[in-house]
Design a protein around this nucleic acid. Structure first.
Lengths: 157, 157
DNA sequence: GCCAATCAGGACCATCCCGGTCCAGTTAGC
DNA sequence: GCTAACTGGACCGGGATGGTCCTGATTGGC
């Protein structure tokens, strides 16, 4: 299934959401606007800040803001920030864990080309590619001030 | 981390090992030769047989044999057989599970191009690509009959 | 015709990792 | 000084994964 962590999925949503505004946005505000539990969003944002994808402003009236435009953020970066370096299996050069049967394993280290291929593929696609097209126009939030955000981001339903 | 299941890793090793002989090989024999617990190898082989990558011969003197040369088996097939269809996240068209906040999610369904890119990358690399080159010559088991396999597959070193 | 070897297919369990929550601490505006 | 917000850590439960075992079906040999 090639499982990608759910946190990474959230991160993409959060980043796209963050791109919709010019000022900083608080994690409670973002959480409310995308319908993800607040502590989880906070954790994602903290990780993204540590990874240098977003900037954090502490204190009152603080929040997070995007450091680069979506078009300059390949998904590989997001995945690497949240999930750690992109590597398929344990049998990769970087990993410290040696597979126990390495003396017998006939293809040890051979996952590298596969990893490279995947890394290339993921580096070629940016968040902007994921955002544009086929997104319902209703959700293209156009730089709305965060002030009243928590009140009316939810479509009337 | 983009975790790939360990079973898939085993499957690759098993398939490469299977390619080293012309006749059928039993699962205990393969297990002994690659240093992986026998029941686990049996499970992998069963799955591979169900997926059409190997053929099984039941009864006494039965075993498994490869159906295609390694060069005709893209890793995407192995992964799909063991781990299920290649899909990164839950937010994919094929998945029946709807993400609960789909009304709010601004990029729903947008993982598809990413999945396609990864699928292409994995389809372009075959098991032969992973086997050849940079493998110690000692491990290039040259079509050795399975009869005495369990005794001397371990290179003297 | 019987027996042994081997695959088939399931149930089953333990362990690890992930997702999610919470708390104490720090910073910055008012 | 107080409050709002980020920071960093610990913490815990659930689910998936890896691994084992058992029973049955099939085939070849004696």
């Amino acid at each position: 299934m090639l499982r990608l962590s759910k946190l990474t999925d959230y991160a993409v949503v959060v980043l796209v959401r963050l791109a919709g505004t010019e000022g900083v946005q608080t994690s409670p505000g973002i959480a409310a606007s995308i319908g993800i539990p607040e502590p989880t969003v906070a954790k994602v944002l903290k990780t993204l800040a540590a990874g240098g994808l977003v900037a954090s402003q502490r204190g009152a009236r603080g929040g997070y803001r995007l450091l680069r435009p979506l078009s300059a953020i390949p998904i590989a970066d997001v995945i690497a920030t949240i999930d750690g370096p992109i590597a398929l299996a344990a049998c990769v050069d970087g990993s410290a864990t040696e597979c126990e049967s390495q003396g017998l394993c006939p293809i040890r280290g051979r996952w590298d080309p596969v990893n490279d291929a995947i890394h290339q593929a993921l580096s070629a696609i940016t968040l902007a590619d994921m955002q544009e097209a086929s997104v319902p126009r209703a959700f293209r939030v156009p730089a709305r001030p965060a002030a009243t955000a928590s009140a009316n981001v939810l479509p009337a339903e």
